[in-house]
Amino acid sequence: MTLSEHVRTLGRGPGRARSLTQDEAREAMRLMLRPDAAPEAVGALLMLLRMKGEVAEEIAGFTQGVQASLLPLPQVDLDWPSYAAGRTRGLPWFLLSARLLASAGHRVLLHGWNGDDGAVRGGLAAAGIAVADTPDQAARLLDQHGIAYLPLEILSPALFHLLSLRQQLGLRSCINTVCRMLNPARAKASVQGVFHPSYRLLQADAAALMGWRALSVIKGGGGEFERHPAKEIAGFGLRGGQPWEGTLPSLIDDTRRLDDGARDPAALAALWSGELDDPFARQVVLGTAALALDTLGDAQSDTTARSLWAARRTAQAA
């Protein structure tokens, strides 16, 4: 099929238009990723999907279409996408949660793009997480440190181009969701944040269609996988390949917002080293890490997260 035929499927009008099947979506993505894809057809397809509303079969198919185009990466334990635009989020404390898991021997791959918001990439060095310039370098960093950040524009320039079309189209497209679902190293578990709550079940259902085993999706800080410690949080996803829903209790009695105005990434390094004593930020890190550990199958995830935090201080003292 051609890309125009997929556009026709979506845009025939009331009573005749329908959603794409998973196979059709996989093929449509293959066509959109080609350098000779007609920009008019790409824009039409993305905006028709935007108006209709995405379904799990489409997201699963689009994601599989991108996955088939990626260079191979070494196996990791946890996939950690970061694609939020930064609204309502302050410093990216969740980066320390990812580093905490890596300190326990879990191989963690972060990947992402955050538009004009530079907080995540600006915080990586302070959080002790190296950025890979190539997929091969990501593999070396994972072997050396157990964690790496792979920018989307390095991971998939073609998908990055589709994501960047938001500037021309003026609206979010399904590509934002596909990026979160990408799991480029085929990790056994993934943790995802969303800004709009309706996407939690969409992403969980798409993951089930792709045969994933473990996933946690929350409405997190600014759309990232970052748990607000003073709020009760609803979690969705998969456990053992089966649908999972849970309610995560608040961890601290506080009225502080995640975006408290702090912008200096040096605070990340200071919290990790112990130079900064910030109970709220520490609970952001521990609560986020605990849910990630639970996704990996740790039945005592809260206790493990606290032990890892304490062990990190012990290692520093030694």
Results as ranks from 00 to 15, higher is better:
Ala266Tyr: 06
Gly241Trp: 04
Ala281Pro: 09
Ala269Thr: 02
Leu258Met: 14
Gly287Thr: 01
Leu271Gln: 09
Glu232Ile: 11
Pro243Tyr: 03
Pro249Trp: 04
Asp278Phe: 02
Glu275Pro: 05
Val284Gly: 04
Arg256Met: 04
Gly246Phe: 02
Ala262Val: 08
Trp272Gly: 07
Ala267His: 12
Gln283Met: 13
Thr288Tyr: 01
Asp260Lys: 13
Asp278Asn: 09
Asp254Glu: 10
Ile233Tyr: 03
Asp264Ala: 12
Phe236Asn: 10
Lys231Leu: 15
Ala281Thr: 02
Ala281Asn: 03
Ala281Leu: 00
Asp277Ala: 14
Arg239His: 11
Ile233Asp: 13
Gly287Tyr: 02
Leu251Gln: 15
Trp244Gly: 06
Gly235Pro: 07
Gln242Tyr: 06
Arg263Gly: 08
Arg263Val: 15
Trp244Cys: 05
Gly261Asn: 08
Gly241Tyr: 03
Ala281Tyr: 00
Ala270His: 04
Val284Leu: 12
Gly246His: 08
Asp260Ala: 15
Gln242Val: 12
Lys231Gly: 01
Phe236Asp: 10
Leu251Glu: 06
Pro279Lys: 04
Pro265Tyr: 00
Phe280Asp: 01
Leu238Ala: 11
Pro279Gly: 06
Gly261Leu: 04
Pro243Gly: 07
Ala270Tyr: 00
Leu258Arg: 07
Ala262Tyr: 08
Ile252Arg: 14
Gly241Leu: 03
Asp259Tyr: 05
Pro243Trp: 00
Leu286Pro: 08
Gly274Glu: 07
Gly246Arg: 15
Leu248Gln: 12
Ala234Arg: 15
Gln242Ser: 12
Glu245Ser: 14
Gln283Trp: 03
Gly246Lys: 14
Pro243Asn: 03
Arg256Ala: 13
Leu286Lys: 10
Leu238Gly: 06
